[in-house]
C-alpha cells in the first residue's frame, strides 16, 4: 500500500514536468495544445532508442527528449502562426504525425529498458535508496530547478511578452511584439518540457511505448485544475506566479495519488481516463454554471433590490 503511494508520488513528480509544459500553453496562452500526447511519447521513444540501441548516457537521453519536444512544438507553432491553422487542429495534426514518427524511431511499438542503467537506478545503486525514493529525489530536484527557471524566464522581457500575448494580442502587437514569434516560442518551450517529462517517465517505468502519451493532455489539464483548487484554499490564493507553477506540479502528484487510491479500491485502470475527463469537464463547467446562476439570482423584478 505504502509502496503504491510512493510509486504514485514518483510518477506524479515526473509527469508534473509535463504539467508545467501544459500550464504554459493552457493557462498563459489560453491554447489547449494537443501536440502534448505526441511530444510526450516522442521524448520517451527517442530517449529509449538512444539508451538501448546506441548506448547513450541516460542524462543525454533526457536532453534529447527535451530537444525533440522543442522541435515538435515548433511544428505545431509554425502550422498555427505561419499558416493560421487553429491551434487545436495544428496540435492534432502534429500529434497524429508523431504517432508514425515514433513508430519509425523505435522500429516497433515498444522498447523495454530493463537491462540498461538509468538515472534513477544509478542513484539507487550509489546511495542505497529504493527506486521509488530515488525517483522522487531526482524528480523533485529537476522539477524545482525547472520551476525556478520558468519563474526567471517569465519575468524577463521576452517572458513578459509571452504572458502578455495570452492576455491581449491587440495590445502586444500595438506595443511592437510579433505575436507569431511569442506563440511559436511558447509552444516550443512547452513541448520541450513535455518531451523531457516523457524521457524521464520512460526511464522510470523502464520501457517506452508508442501509446505512452495517449491522454497526456487530459492528465495535464486535470493536474492543473486540481492544483488550482487546492491552491485557492491556501492563504496566498495562488496570486504569485511561482506558487501557480508549484501548484501545477503538486496537482500532478495529487492526481497520481487519487489514481493509486481508486485503483486500490478496485477500479479498472482503463476507467481512469474517463474519470480524468470528467474531472476536467467539471472543473471547466462549474465556474460557468455558477456565474450564470449568480446572474439569474441577481435579477429582481422590482428594480433595485
Amino acid at each position: 500500500m505504502l509502496l503504491a503511494f510512493q510509486g504514485a508520488v514518483a510518477q506524479g513528480v515526473l509527469w508534473g514536468i509535463m504539467v508545467l509544459g501544459v500550464y504554459i500553453t493552457f493557462r498563459l496562452l489560453d491554447i489547449a495544445d494537443l501536440t502534448v500526447d505526441g511530444s510526450f511519447a516522442l521524448g520517451g521513444c527517442t530517449c529509449a532508442v538512444l539508451i538501448v540501441e546506441h548506448g547513450v548516457n541516460p542524462w543525454l537521453g533526457l536532453l534529447a527528449g527535451l530537444c525533440v519536444g522543442v522541435l515538435a512544438g515548433g511544428v505545431t507553432g509554425l502550422l498555427h502562426t505561419v499558416f493560421d491553422i487553429p491551434a487545436i487542429l495544428a496540435g492534432i495534426l502534429t500529434q497524429i504525425g508523431l504517432w508514425s514518427i515514433n513508430l519509425r524511431i523505435m522500429g516497433k511499438a515498444n522498447i523495454p529498458l530493463l537491462k540498461n542503467p538509468n538515472i534513477f537506478s544509478d542513484l539507487g545503486k550509489a546511495s542505497g535508496l529504493t527506486q521509488n525514493i530515488a525517483t522522487i529525489v531526482i524528480g523533485s530536484l529537476v522539477a524545482a530547478a525547472l520551476v525556478a527557471l520558468l519563474y526567471w524566464f517569465f519575468g524577463t522581457e521576452i517572458g513578459s511578452a509571452l504572458r502578455a500575448t495570452g492576455n491581449n494580442e491587440d495590445m502586444v502587437r500595438a506595443l511592437g511584439v510579433d505575436i507569431r514569434m511569442t506563440k511559436l516560442l511558447a509552444l516550443m518551450v512547452s513541448n520541450g518540457l513535455v518531451g523531457l517529462s516523457g524521457a524521464l517517465v520512460c526511464q522510470s517505468q523502464k520501457y517506452a511505448d508508442v501509446g505512452m502519451g495517449t491522454g497526456a493532455i487530459i492528465v495535464g489539464l486535470a493536474a492543473i485544475v486540481i492544483g488550482e483548487v487546492l491552491g485557492r484554499t491556501l492563504p496566498g490564493k495562488l496570486r504569485s506566479f511561482s506558487s501557480r507553477l508549484i501548484a501545477a506540479v503538486v496537482g500532478s502528484i495529487v492526481y497520481f495519488l487519487i489514481r493509486a487510491i481508486v485503483l486500490q479500491l478496485g477500479l479498472d485502470p482503463n476507467d481512469m481516463k474517463l474519470l480524468s475527463a470528467i474531472i476536467v469537464a467539471l472543473a471547466l463547467s462549474v465556474p460557468v454554471v455558477w456565474s450564470r446562476y449568480q446572474l439569474k439570482r441577481a435579477y429582481s423584478k422590482g428594480g433595485v433590490a
Binding site: F153, E157, A164, N167, L175
Partner: peptide
C-alpha cells in the same frame, strides 16, 4: 493586459519598438 500588474504593463509598454531580451 488584465492579468498583469500595473507596473508590468508599463514596463512592457516602455520597451515598445526596442528589442526584447532575457
Amino acid at each position: 493586459a488584465a492579468d498583469m500588474q500595473i507596473d508590468e504593463n508599463l514596463a512592457f509598454a516602455a520597451r515598445r519598438g526596442k528589442s526584447r531580451t532575457l
